[in-house]
Every structure is written in C-alpha cells, then in structure tokens.
Design a protein around this nucleic acid. Structure first.
Ligand SMILES: [Zn+2]
Ligand SMILES: [Zn+2]
Lengths: 558, 558
DNA sequence: TAATGGGTGCACT
DNA sequence: AAGTGCACCCATT
C-alpha cells in the first residue's frame, strides 16, 4: 500500500521528457517552472509555492472555498478555513476525527505507513467509510499538524485573488469521504447554485468511492455564471513526512511515497455565496453509514443524471471544454471509458485519455518520488510582506521563457474582479451587506476605476486572436510555480493574450451549458468594467492611492 | 515588589481568626468552607471549586460575560470566552498581547517576579498603560497558558446557571488595563444598559489605575433591571506558579506571594444582550495612550458624575446596599475616604470601612500567603459529576455549621430562570430571536412556571424577617466553597431565608437608584414568576419531560 | 439522561 | 503557516 505509484497520467507526456531543462533558476533565486514540471519542482523546492492561475474573479470571499473544494475534494483533501480575512483566506486540511482511543503515539501517527494519497481504495477496502478505519488504529494525527496550506490572498494592486498552494505535503492519507458533513454541505451548495455538472461529477466520485473504485483523477467542470476560468494543476508529492508534533523531528524522512494529483476545472460560483445549507447533525453510526452507502448506490444506478455520466454527451461536454482551454490531461480519464476497472493498477492504465504519449508521461510521473525536506522549517523565514507582490504566470506554450515571465503583474489581465472592492456601480449594492461596516463597498472602488476605461483595450489588443491558438497547442495548464522573490516583468504580451482568451471564451462555454443565461464575452456592463479595471496598469497613481486606502481600511475592522 | 501582602481587608476579621476550625472535611472527602475561609481553603485545596452563588437568572448566555466582567475586571482579570455552548460557557484570561520581540523565556515568564495581584501600581509606576510594560521585557507568557478558568454551566434540572471558578491561579500578573479594547466595549455596554452605577464605579477604577493608585478592592454595584441578586466572593491566592509551558515543570513553586481578591455586587443585565458596541480599533501608540490618560484625568476632574464618587451621597449608597445584604467587607473601602493614599500600604489602611474589627480581619488576611500546588495537575482527577449537586452556603453567623449545609438543591430558591430551554409559551416570542431556532425562549418558560405561583411563599415564608438580621450580623458573603463530593442536605431553612432576602431586597435597592423604575420586591409579574420557578421542586414529572425535550432540541442545532 | 470535557472551524483583531 | 476569541461540534460518562 505504501510507496504506491499508480498515478493516472495527468501531466502531458511531452513535458515530462524535458522536465529538467525547463526548470530554470532565475538570478534572484526564484524558480520558474512549467506546469508539467511541477512534480519535480515540488520535490526539489519545497519552499516554493504552487500558484493557481488563473482563478475566477471571486466576487466574495465565500466563493473561494467552494471553488477550491471542487478541486481538492477529488484529491481526497477536505479543506477548511484556517483563518480568513477580507483580503486573505488560509485553507488547510480538515482535522482528522479522533478515534475512540485518542492517544496515539506522538512521533508517528501509528503510521498506517502509507499516506498513500492516490488510490484510497487500496489501503482501506472499506471504501470511504470513516468509521471503518476508526475506533482505535486510525491515524488520528493527534493535533492536526498537516502542513498543507492553500493561501488565497486578494491583491489590491491587481484587484484579484491569488491562490497559492503553500505546502503540498500531508501528514495523513488522502481519502475522499463522501459521508463527511462538510462534503454534504458542499454538494448541497452545488445544487443550490445549479451547478449540475459538478454535481454529476461528484456523484461519480461518490460512486467510485463507495464502490472501492480508484479515484486517482477527477474532473470538476466549470459552471460559474460570470467567469469561466479553467483551473487545474497537477502535483506529485513523492515523500510525505509523517506528522511529528513539532517537538522532536527524529525520523528524517520515512521515504514513504506519497502522490497527490489535483485536477479540476474550477469556477467561481455565480451568486448566492451567503446561504449555507442548513446544518444537519447526523448520527455517525456505522450502521447509518452503511445505509447511506447502499442508498446512494441505488440512487446512482437509478438516477438519469448519473446514468449518463459515462455516455457520449458527457464526453462531448468535456471535449468542448477542452477546445476552450481546458487542459485535457487534467480531465477525468474515466469519462472516456464505459467500464470500471476492478483493481487500481489496471484502472490507472485503463482510464488513460486517448492522448498521445500519455503513458510515457505517467511513467515519468511515477519516478518523481523524491523526498521533501521539512517545509515547516523553512517557512519561518518567509517574508510575508511581499505576499501581495506580483507573481509569475507560466504557460506551457511559453515554457522556454519560464524563468522570465514572473512579474508582469502590472499587465496581467486575467479577470481579476476584486471580491468586494470593485463594485462601484450603485445599482448592485446588494452585496454590500456582506462586509463589515465602514469598509468600502466594491461598488465604490469600481466606480473609482471607471475613470480609465480605455486601458482595457490598450493593454490587451489581441485578446481574441490567440484563443484557439492556446487551446490547440498543449492545453495550457494555467499553473505556475514561483517562489517569494520573483519580480521580473517580462513576456507581458503573451500573458495578456492568454488571459484575455480565458475571459472571452469562458462566457461562450457557459452559454453552451445554459443558453438562457447567455452572455457574450464581456458584454455585461459590470463585466466590462471589471475587465477594464483588471487590464489597466496598476502603476496609475490613483490606483495606488485607492489601494492604500483599501489596505488600511481592511485592518480597521470597521 | 514580589511577595506583596498589602491586602485591603476584604474578609471580615472575625472569620479569619477561626478560619482553621471552620474548614471541615466531611466524611466523604469533601470540604466545606465558609466564605471568609476561602483564602486558606484555596491555598490548601486547589482541586476544589469556588462556586459563585447565587447568580442572576441570566436570560441569555450573553449576559453571563458582562456580569463576570463586572466582578473580574476590578481584579485585574480580563476574561474572554474560551468555549461556549448552549449549556455552558468557559471563560479564561485574555491572552497577553505579545510584545514586539515575542521571545520570552520559556520556563519563567521573565518573572516580573511578583504576579502581585492587588497593588498593580507598585510594580509598574507607569500606571496601567500596557505599552509601558511591553516591547520586550513584558511577561507575555508566550502561549496563553494561564490555568484560570470560570465555568458557567446551565443545569437543566435546576434551570439555573451555575458559575464556578475552576482555577484561581494565574500565570501572569493581574493588572487592570483601562485602555484595553475589551474593557472599552464592556464599559460601553454598561452605558447602553444604563448601568450608570457600575459606570461610575469603573470610572473610579480607571481613575485609580491611571493615577497609580492602588486597586486592591473594588465595588461593582448591582444595577440590573429584572433581577437583583447580590453576588460577591473573596479569594486570596497566596502563591501563583509562573507560567510553564507545560513541558517541564521544573520550579515546583516559586513561593511568590499572590493575592487576589474579588468582590462585586453582580447583576444580570436587564435586556438587550444582543447589541454589541461597534468595534473601534484604536491605535496603540504610547503617545496615544498618554493622551487618553490625560484626557480621562481631566474628564474625571470635571465630570459631575465622577465628581461625587467620593462624596457622602456615594457613601450613603454603599451603606444602603449594606443594609440590604451586600457584604460590607467586599465593598470598596476607598469610598469611605475622600483622599487618595499615595502608597498602597498606607491606602490599604486608610481605606478601611468604618466597621468594627475590620483591621483585624485585614491583618489576618495578610497571613494567608500559602503556596498552591499546581492545580492543573490535580484537576484531571476531579470528578465533575457532582458539581451541580447541592452545595453549601455559608453565612458568617452560621459558620459553626458549615460542614452541614451543603445539599438542599431542591429547595434553594435563588432565582434560576432557564436561559433558553424553557419557553413553551407561544405568546411571548419576542426574545426568541436571540436563541437558535426551535429553542424555547425564556419568557415562555416563565409563563410556563406560573402554574405554581404559590411555591414562592411556601418555600420562603420568612423572607422578610431575616433581611436585617443577616445584613447586620456579619454581612454574608454569599459565597460557598465546596468540592465534588458534597451530598449532605442540611440547614435548608437558613439557605432559603438567605437567598430570599437577596431576591427581595435587591429591587428595593434598585428602586433607590432609579425611583422612576421603582418596583417593590417581587412585585413585578415576571419577577414573581421567576421566583416561583426557582422555588418549586424540580422533581416535577412534567418538568423532566420538558427537560428531555429541551435537551434533545439543544443538540438538534435547529 | 444529563452533564462533563474537549476539538476545531473560522473570522476578528 | 498571523494568534486567539468564540461557538459549533463531538465523545465520554
Ligand atoms: Zn493534509
Ligand atoms: Zn490569568
């Protein structure tokens, strides 16, 4: 079970071959790596950040978590908010439930010895029932010391939320639990938001989990109403240090292979981020869980919505998303097959998408079993004052220039609709109540930005020309790795094109899903305003003044 | 500065003489101690609890904290909620603000060496300005490891909130900081609740703090609108172990004398427990604090409300309260003087209330400098199942029977209005919004209890006869110490009389403050209902049925 | 059962 | 990797 290397080919093959050459160290010590080189980069540079980009233009802080849940639930990672702010949200792994006898050893979490991330069904034949593992031997990881973090920070300069995976190592196994309360709420919210495509995908995920089928990869389509960025990243984490209660780091590294691949098509949820599903405290008996499992299984078999999960229509939807910039290698390979593989190993091979060189890439990925130095030791030295500084954007089709395209924050036009600082339009002041009093409302801030509406076109003149170009080349993953100190400003035109494509294509894809809500690219007044704000240069004096004010007010608690 | 024994005489002298004889060990290992013997009891029996009784009939969980703040702010203890529930609230000391260089020694909190609770002005001539201590040498007690806890639990059986000081030791010095944000909110809430008498008292406290005057004792008058319990207790904590980060308990006991006396006249706040004062984050520069200090000093000198803090009218008020059952020994002795003493020692003597034997009692109290074994080590073995069993009430005039008057829970008529579990009446749903949906509101509960209105009189037939009796004899403290295993039921008539006196006399005192709100004792329908509820036997079958339902609903989260 | 005790999500500061 | 105030939880008895 440990040292499992059954990874589904989520990283395009062509990249892995030249992985080493693509990782470049810039002269200031920063590292620029392409998306397909993430596994190796993660293994070698733990103190680097995995930057998710682009991200939807979250209009509310509360939209971030559902979006991330779409990405990380299929990876067996249940995220919770560790701390949140008006300008940042720190996510972490949900703490493990304590087993009955919650006195595990301190130095090693009773080491289920594996922390095997990918194939959860291998280690626990009990399939996703948390109670099965529980009672006594479960790795309860006494204090939740998992170092995994996702940091979402709102850049006042760029007026955009930046999401960075700070630490991809886990002190526990990754396991998708379809019976967790949080997941239930999450899925209920998906339904409330009418994100039926995601609901279907998660139905499939639940089915696989309950059926002991491998869940190595996942697909979460994007269904947002306003934006439609495609977000995905792949991570291979070779070595996961077992949880040590930060007092004695005796075992240097147990060399336990841990693999973690994340793939999804994210989306900002269109609206209603306020209403959470009513909390329903449920009993957690084993019997109840078995009932749930059986019920769900029957429902899945009968439900027409889940019936066609593996039919041609679903596949066509995926292909359509592909053409619009969704990286194929991060789609769920299982959608291309109509049968379930019984063993994880076989399924891993069987679920390969029909991409050339996919298997080679997968094999390459299996070799990225590298040790991680303890990232915790290095984080203390991180200077967080630069957290809102520009960060790099890396595309696959520009991988030869990866070491140069950090910075460029000033021109990156990815749809950065400030979550709350942007909406100046006095007509849409309804969301103002969600923020503390005395904080500027998004409407006010946005109105301030309308003074330079023409910057949008000037910065991204060729926003429509390269859309098909990018999507057909290598399905850019839209992921970038960079460390803290990247400040170069280069290759801005390429970035501009890329992100403008996203903005333009997204509504079209959305329209295909809900024609009644159709809305041409940037045709909405609000949307156009947002784009204008995003694409304009942040070097504007007025902008900085506003930024400073907003920054100060953020800490005023109002 | 350390081993300060400048204690103001808060414990009546006559008691301390026979302190040892009054502490009795019952045959089941429990300890019954009179109020005036609290210092010694605390020093010798750390695993005992200090039970505050009676307490107001809190109608909302949110009313508990302000009430406790009135008691503990004058002691230099700023409480925060560690954890709260529908049925319990755990308070602790507010975490110390870290100085700039937050790397203090681990084993000893740079030991301002004193933890001298009473006279804060002695150690820090900078008078209550937190910045003065700060920056570097301040005992920031890196992780807030103060063991002090106050536990408020709602007993479903007795329909009453019970408040217990779980651990009276502190890992830090006790210092009243009039500039803390929380205190400002607290005081603003006092103003909102029109608790002007408390406002005045705290104005005085602030003045003393800013003027480097000793704040050994305090007075917080009762100003509640609905209830008028008199609450007070006195604690002398001889030895406070310095904070040790629970890893190495090297210094067994530093023998640092710590004295902590608490006195107040508590009251449940009349209404509006929902509206918190708007948070105003203030800059914390030293300059700003000095300005505040100067401004406050000037305002105090000029304000007519604070002008007469030390005039005869104020003293008459105190005397009036005395006659109504308020223990004189817990009143602020300084109100009896019109001049400020410069040194704590002299002021302690100068502020003695004109009571006979007061000085003797004070001297006796100074001798209670006993060491505390670390209470945390012993709390793990305490059996909490009996905590809500009848506890002993000790009056000064019945101190020879102290070991016998625990129990009698069924008849203790202290006003216990259930916070939210009781309301079944459908007419008075106005306060229902303050509680989670589906929870009963207190008003309904009160209406429900009207079915047995006559119980009030039957239980306390002599409620008016002994009022002067108690107040003139030795000013009962209304405090009881008891440990886990007290089960005797004795001297119930005495208890009944005592608490009924409190209930009846309180409104009269209140009326003296606001004649327009005058309300004779138990004349208010609601008030009478509350008394009826409290005095009736909880063994009623219907009551238990309601309890069950309420208990279940409490965990429905609805 | 009713009560005790603690974990932890997460936003305020 | 802000620390912590506070409450929604859960486990145990
Ligand atoms: Zn984790
Ligand atoms: Zn304390």
């Amino acid at each position: 079970m440990d040292s499992i290397s059954t990874s589904s080919g989520l990283v395009p093959d062509s990249m892995t071959e030249s992985a080493e050459s693509h990782s470049r160290q810039t002269n200031d010590g920063s590292l620029a790596i392409q998306a397909n080189e993430l596994p190796k980069a993660l293994a070698e540079d733990q103190n680097k950040f995995i930057h998710l980009d682009p991200v939807p233009d979250f209009r509310d802080k509360a939209e971030i978590k559902p979006w991330l849940q779409k990405i990380f639930y299929p990876q067996g990672i249940e995220i919770v908010i560790e701390r949140s702010d008006n300008i940042k949200v720190i996510f972490k792994c949900k703490a493990a439930k304590r087993g009955k006898n919650t006195k595990p050893r301190r130095n090693e979490v009773t080491t289920t010895s594996s922390m095997s991330a990918s194939s959860s069904s291998v280690t626990s034949p009990n399939t996703g029932l948390s109670s099965a593992a529980g009672k006594k031997k479960r790795s309860v990881s006494r204090f939740n010391t998992c170092p995994f973090r996702i940091r979402a920070t709102f850049s006042l300069k760029r007026r955009k939320w930046n999401i960075v995976v700070v630490n991809n190592s886990h002190s526990h196994e990754l396991k998708f639990d379809p019976d967790s309360d949080e997941y239930r709420k999450f899925k209920e919210k998906l339904r409330e938001d009418n994100d039926w495509d995601a609901v279907k995908q998660f139905d499939e995920l639940e089915y696989k989990s309950r059926s002991n089928l491998p869940i190595e990869s996942s697909l979460i389509p994007c269904e947002c109403g306003l934006t439609s960025e495609i977000e995905s990243f792949s991570i291979v984490l070779p070595s996961t240090k077992p949880a040590q209660n930060n007092n004695s780091t005796d075992s240097p590294s147990t060399n336990i292979t841990n693999r973690n691949s994340v793939s999804s098509i994210g989306s900002g949820i269109g609206s209603n981020s306020s209403g959470m599903a009513p909390v329903i405290s449920k009993p957690r008996s084993k019997k109840w869980q078995q009932q749930q499992q059986q019920r769900h299984r029957e429902k899945l078999m009968r439900n027409p919505s889940t019936e066609h999960l593996f039919t041609q229509s679903q596949l066509q939807l995926q292909l359509q998303q592909l053409q619009q910039g969704c990286p194929v290698e991060f789609l769920d390979p299982s959608i291309f097959t109509d049968s379930f593989a019984s063993s994880p190993a076989s399924s891993t091979m069987a679920t390969q998408p029909p991409q050339q060189q996919q298997q080679q890439q997968q094999q390459q990925q299996q070799q990225h079993s590298l040790q991680l130095t303890d990232p915790l030791t290095e984080f203390n030295e991180i200077d967080f004052t630069d957290i809102f500084k520009p960060h790099s954007i890396h595309l696959q089709d520009v991988h030869s220039n990866t070491q140069q395209d950090h910075g460029s924050d000033l021109l990156q036009p990815s749809q950065s609709s400030p979550p709350q600082f942007l909406d100046t339009n006095h007509e849409t002041a309804s969301r103002r109540d969600e923020f503390p009093p005395l904080l500027f409302s998004p409407l006010d801030a946005a109105a301030n930005e309308l003074m330079t509406p023409t910057d949008d076109m000037s910065v991204s003149p060729s926003h429509t020309s390269n859309s098909q170009n990018n999507s057909s080349q290598r399905w850019p993953t839209g992921i970038s790795i960079h460390d803290q100190h990247q400040h170069q400003h280069q290759h801005q035109p390429i970035l501009r094109q890329y992100f403008n494509d996203d903005e333009i294509l997204a509504p079209a894809r959305l329209a295909s899903l809900w024609p009644q809500q159709q809305e041409t690219s940037s045709s909405s007044p609000l949307r156009r305003v947002v784009n204008a704000v995003d694409s304009q240069s942040p070097c504007n004096e007025n902008d900085y003044a506003v930024d400073d004010l907003l920054w100060k007010m953020n800490f005023e608690n109002a």
